[in-house]
C-alpha cells in the first residue's frame, strides 16, 4: 500500500500546529491481519499519522528546507479507544520547541470528539546532502515529490499548480484564516484557492 497515513489536512499554522484526518476503510489490506476477527487501525499507524502530520507543519514552516523528516523518539504514546473501519481519526500536532535538527511535538488523536490517543514526539529533519554522495540530487527529488503530495493533501492547494510552494494568506486569497480546508467545505473557497462562494455557480 501507499504510505500516506493522512487523507486531508484541515488546518495548519506552518511550523506551529496542524490538524488532519485519517479515514479508516476495510479496503486497507493490513486490516485482514490486524486482526482477522476484529479489524482496527494498528496503534503504530496512528503513531505514523501523528508523525506525518507533525512532519507537514515542520516542512511548511521552513518551506521544505529539509528533505527528510522522521520520527526520532516517542514518549508516552497512549491508546484509549480502538479506531474501526468507517471511523475518522482526527490528529492534531502542536510544536512545543524546535532546534537546528529536532522538533518536539505534542500530539493527540480523537474519534468522534473522544480522545483516542496522546503522545509526545521528537522528529529529526535532515538533508541527504549532508550524509551521502549525490545527496543533493536525492533531496531535490524528495522535495519535489513532497510538494506534490502536499498539494493533494491540502484542498486549498489542489488545482493551484501542484508543485508551486504554497504561501499562506496568498493561497486563500489574502484571508488569514488558518483553516482553509474547513472554509473550503463551507463553500468559502473553491479548489483553485480563490475566494468565491461555491453556491450559485
Amino acid at each position: 500500500m501507499r504510505f500516506t497515513l493522512l487523507d486531508r489536512v484541515t488546518a495548519i499554522d506552518p511550523g506551529k500546529s496542524i490538524t488532519a484526518i485519517k479515514t479508516l476503510t476495510l479496503s486497507e489490506e493490513y486490516l485482514a491481519d490486524h486482526f482477522p476477527r476484529f479489524p482496527v487501525m494498528p496503534g503504530v499507524l496512528m503513531l505514523e499519522s501523528m508523525t506525518q502530520a507533525a512532519a507537514w507543519t515542520i516542512r511548511l514552516g521552513e518551506d521544505f528546507a529539509h528533505a527528510i523528516v522522521v520520527l526520532r523518539s516517542a514518549k508516552n504514546v497512549k491508546y484509549g479507544d480502538f479506531v474501526e473501519p468507517g471511523k475518522v481519526l482526527t490528529v492534531t500536532a502542536e510544536v512545543l520547541s524546535q532546534d537546528e535538527t529536532t522538533t518536539k511535538v505534542k500530539a493527540t488523536g480523537t474519534v468522534g470528539g473522544r480522545t483516542s490517543l496522546t503522545a509526545r514526539l521528537t522528529l529529526e529533519r535532515y538533508n541527504l546532502a549532508d550524509r551521502v554522495a549525490h545527496g543533493d540530487a536525492l533531496d531535490a527529488r524528495v522535495r519535489t515529490e513532497m510538494r506534490k503530495l502536499w498539494a493533494v493533501l491540502h484542498p486549498a492547494g489542489r488545482g493551484a499548480g501542484a508543485v508551486r510552494p504554497l504561501v499562506y494568506g496568498a493561497a486563500v486569497g489574502g484571508a488569514s484564516s488558518p483553516l482553509p480546508g474547513a472554509a473550503y467545505r463551507q463553500g468559502a473557497i473553491d479548489p483553485s484557492g480563490d475566494v468565491a462562494p461555491l453556491a450559485g455557480r
Binding site: M1, L47, E48, I68, L71, A74, L128, V142, E145
Partner: peptide
C-alpha cells in the same frame, strides 16, 4: 515493500513507527 517507495521517494528509509510494530 511498497511503503518504502513513499518513505521517501527515491530515498527509502524504514519508518520507525513500523519498527515499533516489529518490536511489539
Amino acid at each position: 515493500e511498497e511503503h518504502l517507495h513513499d518513505h521517501f521517494p527515491g530515498a527509502a528509509l524504514m519508518p520507525n513507527s513500523l519498527i515499533v510494530e516489529g518490536m511489539a
